[in-house]
Amino acid sequence: MIPSYRKDSLEQHYKIINQLGKGAMGITYAAEDVNTGQKIALKVISLQNLSDAKHLELLEREVTVLKQLNHPNIPQYIDYFQLKEDNKLYLVQELVLGKNLNQQVESGLRLTEGEVKNIAQQVLYILDYLHNFQPSIIHRDIKPHNLILGDDVKIFLVDFGAVHNAYYNTMIGGTVGIGTIGYMSPEQQIGKPVPASDLYSLGRTLLYLLTNRPPDHLLAHKETVNLDHIRDYIQLSDEFIQWLEKILDPDVDERFYSAKEALNSLKNTKSINKEKNSQIGWFALICLGVASVTLGTFSYN
């Protein structure tokens, strides 16, 4: 997607407040629209840092996908532009207040089965939305770093830099896996992602949230799935363990076929943690998240 071209200065549009994160392709800032007062997230990408055409292609694909998305759990695309003389690209999105789930766990967050199910359901609703595009939009980087807990206890899915239309690998004959080691499915590692690959990554994310252990420490990618040992870390119902084993099956044909199927199955499981005080746990999450600001195009550590 070609950015709009502006001849004026950045300061005429946005006032930078603070840096949110830094990645291989640029820096993301919390900023304010000087004309409307709206708080936004500003991703600044130096063209000098785009070492090859592939990086620019990934950025343009990200922007193209973001522009067509309209979902309450995905930060909204606002603008994409280039200034006349500073050799940089700017991507503007809705600013989300909160911490990503990796930061939350590292800060001491411990979740019950019911709370993890709540997160899983929210993510599955998002994936169902993405996968129902024609062709399907596969996120390809579902992990705790890319799930933001907002200050209203809503989960936001961020970082669409690895997004991949389902037909793309077929068109170019690609065999390179794009994503994060430890969370990618076996088929995604060889460059053959399908919508169910996002489900596998979600399953590994849930393992991390439940146990505070990297998923590779609990489950190898190509072994028969047996999660009985997960009870060493948290008490879970048999039904939920069986659901996790299915979403984590290394054989894509044995996994849930779609986000909707996984969601319907999850809704039919019973939680052993239906405590009346579950809202207190969520309030603790909010307190952990309000102190930090993060956004939708980077995964922050």
Rank of each mutant, 00 (worst) to 15 (best):
E275N: 10
V116L: 02
L50N: 07
N118Q: 07
Y90D: 07
P195S: 10
D52T: 08
Y129M: 02
G281K: 03
L59I: 08
E187H: 11
K274G: 12
E113I: 04
Q134P: 01
L285N: 02
F256A: 00
Y5F: 14
M25W: 07
I74F: 08
G191D: 13
V34G: 12
Y129P: 01
K117G: 02
T294C: 04
I78L: 09
F240K: 00
S107T: 05
S46P: 08
Q242A: 13
L56G: 12
D151V: 14
N35P: 06
Q82N: 08
T211M: 14
I78G: 01
S292D: 06
D216T: 13
S258L: 08
N73G: 13
L20T: 05
H131M: 07
L58R: 14
K192H: 14
I45F: 13
E60D: 09
V153E: 11
L124S: 04
I241C: 09
A284Q: 04
V123Y: 00
D198H: 15
D151P: 00
D141E: 08
Q242K: 13
M171N: 10
G173Y: 03
D253Q: 08
V163R: 02
S201Y: 03
W243V: 05
L59N: 11
I172C: 11
I45Y: 10
E85S: 14
S292H: 03
F283M: 11
D238C: 11
S185K: 02
L42N: 04
L59P: 06
S265M: 07
P214G: 15
I247L: 06
A30H: 14
D33E: 15
Y129R: 01
L59Y: 07
I234Q: 10
I17Y: 11
F133D: 06
D253E: 11
H55L: 15
Y300T: 00
N277I: 13
Y80A: 01
I181R: 04
I45W: 07
F298I: 01
N35R: 10
G161R: 00
L59G: 05
L111I: 12
I142E: 03
L266P: 05
D228F: 10
A30L: 14
T112L: 06
R110D: 01
A120L: 04
K117R: 05
Q82T: 11
N49T: 12
Q189T: 12
Q104L: 08
P72R: 09
K84S: 12
M25C: 14
Y129H: 01
N70V: 09
S278M: 06
W282Q: 02
Q93W: 00
Q121H: 08
L101H: 02
I286G: 02
S9A: 14
Q93A: 02
T211I: 12
T36K: 09
